[in-house]
């Protein structure tokens, strides 16, 4: 089932065109990886889905991005609602300089008024269990989140996201600051989460894309060169440029 569809999506930063006529269909409850060399526009594409690019002033887009059949590029889009539904995990884990507990309930507190302490406690436990941090952290909930290890921070950021009950998780190189073991555990977590969420991951690391994703898109210089089943992209790419990239001729 299609969750996100981009139709003739173009995007400019000032006069620089960062995305060129991108057409793609991202399926629900699958992990979709977007790969490509630096500066190919993969992060830009990811940031279209929750309109994070809006923080940049000289931005212009055209085309359509349909999420559940609604065009989110429409100027009437309520960004608060959109970002609640389409959450994002960043390259560098960015927990807020608050306690672990406050980090997780942050989203709940800004979206729901008059929520009780018991309900919040429940959300914290559930979210931490979902990211497999509960047993480690249940006695340390009031400690500053900045004291955690990098992996724990990144998991915490995912927990913080899950707590607001999104449909889509956008992950922008979520493992690039983690060591291989931590990366493996986060990938495992992604596989566990995919039954409930639509996950899109941008990664530099082709092996990671091959390991975790169901579908893969390859981008180059703002164009989506090839998009399809991961095993097909990696074993039988149709485009010469994709083949050259995955065999390591450039990138």
């Amino acid at each position: 089932m299609a969750k996100i569809i981009t139709k003739n999506l173009n995007l400019w930063y000032g006069t620089f065109q960062a995305l060129k006529n991108v057409n793609s269909t991202i399926e629900a409850n699958r992990i979709t990886a977007i790969i490509g060399p630096s500066g190919c526009g993969k992060s830009t594409l990811l940031r279209v889905f929750n309109r994070m690019n809006d923080l940049i002033e000289v931005l212009r887009t055209d085309g359509e991005v349909l999420i559940d059949d609604t065009n989110i590029l429409d100027s009437h889009t309520d960004l608060v609602v959109l970002r609640k539904k389409v959450g994002m995990v960043f390259q560098r884990p960015n927990p807020f300089p608050l306690s672990i507990y406050e980090n997780i309930v942050f989203g709940e507190k800004i979206h729901a008024d008059g929520i009780t302490r018991d309900e919040l406690d429940e959300i914290v436990e559930k979210s931490l269990r979902d990211v497999l941090l509960w047993d480690e952290l249940k006695d340390r909930l009031n400690e500053p989140a900045l004291r955690l290890s990098l992996e724990q921070k990144q998991r915490l950021c995912i927990a913080r996201l899950i707590a607001v009950k999104p449909d889509v998780l956008l992950m922008d190189e979520p493992c690039s600051t983690l060591d291989p073991q931590a990366t493996a555990r986060v990938e495992e977590l992604m596989r566990e989460l995919k039954s409930r969420y639509t996950i899109i991951i941008v990664t530099h690391n082709m092996q990671q894309a091959a390991r975790v994703s169901d579908n893969t898109g390859f981008m180059l210089l703002g164009e989506l060169i090839e998009f399809g089943k991961t095993h097909e992209i990696f074993t039988a790419p149709r485009d010469k440029r994709t083949e050259d990239y995955i065999t390591g001729r450039y990138g």
Binding site: N50, M52, L55, L79, V80, V81, L82, R83, K84, G87, M88, F90, R92, N94, P95, F96, P97, L98, F106, G107, K109, I110, H111, C157, R160, L161, V164
Partner: peptide, 26 residues
């Protein structure tokens, strides 16, 4: 850090919520 701000926005916080709950404590 700009990442705090982005993190708050990405959770659907408004600008003021971001300032009040993240920027000022930080």
């Amino acid at each position: 850090p700009k990442t705090y701000k982005e993190g708050a926005f990405a959770l659907g916080a408004t600008h003021w919520q971001t300032i009040w709950r993240v920027m000022l404590p930080a």
